[in-house]
């Protein structure tokens, strides 16, 4: 994903099937790491996509998005205890 020595503070996952390409997340994203993809999803929208680096995990894109499950925002945590399985994903994908 990136060659940064330190992983990003956040990570954003976009479900392109749920996205209607309204662009509110792109507009709202403070580090400007979201864009509307060139391709169309099956419903004819340009779905929002992550550039792949620079997410801070702030969650603003989640709140401005009108779809309940189109955006999931992750935040980096230093793991102390046992991982809570499904909620976790490795920092270096």
């Amino acid at each position: 994903m990136s060659g940064n020595p330190k992983p990003d503070r956040g990570l954003v996952k976009l479900d392109s099937d749920e996205c209607k390409g309204c662009g509110l997340c792109v507009e709202a994203c403070p580090p400007k790491v979201l864009h509307l993809a060139d391709h169309l999803n099956p419903y004819g929208y340009h779905p929002a996509a992550y550039t792949g680096a620079g997410c801070t995990g702030c969650g603003i894109c989640f709140y401005v998005c009108p779809e309940p499950g189109a955006i999931t925002v992750f935040r980096l945590v230093e793991q102390k205890a046992e991982p809570k399985s499904e909620e976790l994903m490795p920092a270096a994908a």
Binding site: P7, G10, L11, D15, D17, E18, K20, Y43, G57, G59, F62, Y63, P66, E67, P68, G69, A70, I71, T72, V73, F74, R75, L76, V77, E78, Q79, P83, K84, E87, L88, M89, P90, A91
Partner: peptide
């Protein structure tokens, strides 16, 4: 070791699939 955890995601009280909707059951009608 660091890993990512969900900070903002789909609320639990949303249905996973919108089965009461006739089609396109993974997105809203809005």
């Amino acid at each position: 070791m660091a890993s990512y955890t969900v900070a903002h995601g789909k609320a639990k009280c949303f249905y996973d699939h919108y089965e009461r909707k006739a089609d396109l059951q993974h997105q809203t009608h809005y």
